[in-house]
Design a protein around this nucleic acid. Structure first.
Length: 566
RNA sequence: UGUCCGAUGGUGUAAUGGCAGCACAAGAGAUUUUGGUUCUCUUGGUCUAGGUUCGAAUCCUGGUCGGACAACCA
């Protein structure tokens, strides 16, 4: 059984996407005895990305919704591109997203059956061995507006075809020497029906079948039949396979086997990123990112490392919907789903990422107070943590301005702000670097009776700042990630350029942050909110002595908007 | 100059011949010891021209625009 996610289970009157409408109708008509069986069929030639997550949620979610089953099947028909590294990562990602497959299969599990299917077509005079070279075949295929011409090998006898095909399998011919083709119609308006290739010779080791085979079925000759063998009732796939459907149906009909129903939907596109495996591979290979799980990548493993939760991704998949028109989803919707989830779950902590020293002149030298701070205001049951407060603190440089604009309600000369969970302070003076003018030290006084919880703590001040004690903080390496591309559509480039010109040079900035001691209790993968700064997670690169933290995303920042307008 | 698919606010997605709704984004306000959260409100849409109908986003026809298809890739 595919795991049921109660949150994504639609309400009685919730809108139903067109695929679920079709399935509801099928169940009503008792098609397949009301059985619903889907599958997620990746090729193990790369890592899964957020686009795959949409498909995974759709397939597993559909099975769960209708009490059906969902398989995981690796469509591994091309040994030169595939690898067990990818198989492992795909299984990990699917599980992490929260799904459990019913059957785990490989297209290569069916190579024997597929071989028999091919022979059956030969016997039915519906397939032939063709000796044309790749170039010749491409020439004879015609174009979308011109019909192709028949291969001179099209009318070989059944016996000759059977013999040649057997010898292809036996390894008697070099790679590329011959192929097995379907005999359909070289003048068909659908190019895919112009005698497509069924089998080709590849003398390569397969990650699953080793050296058992030297001929491999084409995806088109494998995919539909694999679905059929597994009894898949609804083969949900992306739009580009719509033109393949007549071919799949042709195989099913001629082979006289169970007929799954293929339904196509629009693949996901996200603004400010690229989604094709080829481009992602390029980013990895050329070192623009640090591997498939780089937190800037739209891969599942990248999002996981960035600090996304499976819940937020499932919610996203639910919210974007399913339809047949091309969709480009604004990345802000993904961020919304993320914040919505993290806001409920993430423990609050204070950390200063861009520090400037603040000294409270009238606070006793050497004194340390341990103040109570709420762990998560959205989840009061989590209680409190202790934060050490003392005379010398760090605050964010951006929280102090010498001559601020009107709506700035942070710290300024002569101004008052609250230090969160602590006291109200007043800025008395500040020191500047004589050369750069940069503020190097801020001097304040505090009002002892304004500590949080004290009677006078209700005093109204405009701003509240987070802070960290100079001598009681944990230093950590914080990786500030931003979107990977500066352009909404990275592929949108001028003649002669490619998508990489739109790479964001500032997609990663590394800083040293001062964090309250409570950070030490969190382990790689744990998620927290640094108050006023954003959501962060502990990275796997952390060691005993060097804590590494990723910024998952900033908080929604209205001040940035106001400041930006001025 | 082919075949197939598609077209609803900025972005997505509903409405299945009967009041064009929802989410994100954007804008205004309230609350707030996170310029977060929460709450209230606002702006803004049926590609186009005909036809069928009492009534069309929905059905029909033409056009326009977008996408897919000519790998021994999937």
């Amino acid at each position: 059984m595919a795991e049921i996610n109660p949150e994504s289970l639609p309400e009685e009157k919730a809108p139903v996407n067109f695929i679920h409408q079709i399935i509801q109708e099928d169940i009503k008509n008792n098609k397949n005895n009301g059985r619903v069986h889907t599958r997620f069929p990746p090729e193990p030639n790369g890592y899964l990305h957020i686009g795959h997550a949409k498909s995974i949620c759709l397939n597993f979610g559909t099975a769960a919704k209708f009490g059906g089953k969902c398989n995981l099947r690796f469509d591994d028909t091309n040994p030169v591109k595939e690898d067990t590294e990818y198989v492992d990562s795909i299984m990990e990602d699917v599980r992490w997203l929260g799904f459990n497959w019913d059957g785990l299969y490989y297209a290569s599990d069916y190579f024997d059956t597929l071989y028999e299917y091919a022979k059956k077509l030969i016997i039915k005079k519906l397939a032939y061995v063709c000796d044309l070279s790749q170039e010749e075949m491409s020439l004879q295929r015609g174009t979308v507006t011109k019909p192709g011409t028949d291969s001179p090998y099209r009318n070989r006898t059944v016996e000759e075809n059977l013999d040649l095909f057997r010898r292809m399998r036996a390894g008697e011919f070099p790679e590329g020497a011959r192929v097995l083709r379907a005999k359909i119609d070289m003048a068909h308006a659908n190019m895919l029906m112009r005698d497509p290739i069924l089998y080709r010779i590849i003398h390569a080791e397969h990650h699953n079948t080793g050296d058992k085979w030297c001929i491999y079925p084409m995806y088109d000759f494998a995919h539909g039949q694999c679905d059929s063998i597994e009894g898949i009732t609804h083969s949900i796939c992306t739009l580009e396979f719509e033109v393949h459907r007549p071919l799949y149906d042709w195989f099913i009909e001629k082979l006289e086997i169970f007929a799954p129903q293929q339904i196509e939907f629009a693949r996901l596109n996200l603004s400010y990123t690229v989604m094709s495996k080829r481009k992602l591979l390029q980013l990895v290979n050329e070192g623009h990112v640090n591997g498939w799980d780089d937190p800037r990548m739209p891969t599942i493993s990248g999002l996981r490392r960035r600090g996304f939760t499976p819940e937020s991704i499932r919610r996203f998949a639910d919210v974007i919907g399913v339809a047949k028109r091309d969709q480009v989803i604004d990345v802000s919707l993904l961020e919304f789903c993320l914040r919505e989830d993290l806001n409920k779950k993430a423990d609050r902590l204070m950390a200063v990422l861009n520090p400037v020293k603040l000294i409270i002149d009238n606070y006793p030298e050497g004194q340390v107070e341990y103040l109570d701070a709420v762990i998560n205001p959205e989840d009061p049951e989590k209680g409190f943590r202790k934060v050490p407060f003392s005379k010398e603190l760090f605050i964010e440089k951006e929280d102090f301005m010498i001559d601020p604009p009107g709506k700035f309600f942070r710290l300024k000369p002569g101004g008052e702000v609250r230090l969160k969970y602590a006291y109200i302070i007043k800025c008395e003076s500040f020191l500047q670097d004589p050369v750069t003018g940069e503020v190097t030290e801020i001097h304040c006084t505090y009002e002892p009776d304004t500590r949080s919880g004290m009677p006078n703590s209700n005093k109204k001040v405009k701003g509240t700042l987070h802070w960290a004690a100079v001598s009681n903080s944990v230093k950590s390496e914080v990786r500030l990630y931003d979107r990977l591309f500066v352009k909404e559509t990275p592929e949108d480039v001028e003649e002669g350029q490619d998508f990489k010109v739109n790479l964001n040079p500032d997609s990663l900035k590394v800083v040293t942050a001062y964090c309250e001691p409570a950070i030490s209790q969190y382990k790689p993968g744990d998620k927290v909110q640094f108050e006023r700064m954003g959501y962060f997670c502990v990275d796997q690169d952390s060691t005993e002595t060097n804590l590494v933290i990723n910024r998952t995303t900033t908080l929604k920042d209205n001040w940035a908007k106001i400041a930006g307008k001025e």
